[in-house]
Amino acid sequence: MTRKLQVPLVTAEVDGQRVQVPEASTLLEAIRAAGKDVPTLCYHPVLEPIGACRICVVEVEGSRTLVPACIRRVEAGMRVRTDTPRVQLSRRMVVELLQGSVDTSLAPDVRRYAAEYGARPERWEPFAQEGPRAKHAPKVDNDLYVRDLDRCILCYRCVRACGEEVQNSFAIAVAGRGLAARIDPGFDLPLPDSACVFCGNCVAVCPTEALVPKTQFEMRRAGTWEEGRQQVVTTICPYCGVGCKLNLHVQDNRIVKVTAPLEDPITRGFLCVKGRFGWTYVHAGTAADPGGGAEPSTPPGNL
């Protein structure tokens, strides 16, 4: 089983440094192989790249435009520059455009890049119009996760996770066009009437809390969400026999969120509804039951 295929290598140059990577590697992979990095937003390590957010752009010698590193394949002899003023301008602008169009306050990556590239979204404010940036209330149409589309940067990660790459539910897609494009289950259906199976795998890949577990959403509102005080304990899901690893996020002896470790080859970070949301019973009947029960059929509470 350890038979290794001989993959031909290609040589490219990253910021003047020669690097050898397997054929069909992306520029991002080559850049990382060279010990460098570029910022990414729509890129996610377990999803296919789509090159939509354009923050990972780099200069490639001979190319008229900048090139998205996440999706472009390395070619032999390519000379790549990852941090020129031209590149920095694009990255700063992408961050400014995002910050000016949605609420990125809970998007740690965007905030980090904003600081790194010196984004000044306020310089667009004198020109801002009300209409196209109208705010929408968070959509709370079920008790497991919330859609706060004002935070959505349209990275398509959720759509990819819901679609053929992972979950194959195809419950959400991009609807509308241009600035009005948004993630929608179709015909503006509430999620429970859609094809959604509430695996929360979209939530797992969302980089901005546009999709967020309801527990987290409510604790944030109440001001009690304190990531710094949370411990993460890895265990195994209590339901079926697949053996998914769960990361239990625990605050004050309570589970506040469940995720799955990306590096686990069984889940790759993806779970089903029971694994991600079906944990509330361990707190049933105790004070501040976070999930509560829908007419529990069993007397709640440990004895």
Binding site: L144, P192, V273, T280, Y281, G292, G293, A294, P296, S297
Partner: peptide
């Protein structure tokens, strides 16, 4: 026993 106690998106 376990699943009666989370808020499922479909009726129990």
């Amino acid at each position: 026993v376990q699943t009666a106690l989370y808020r499922t998106p479909v009726p129990q």
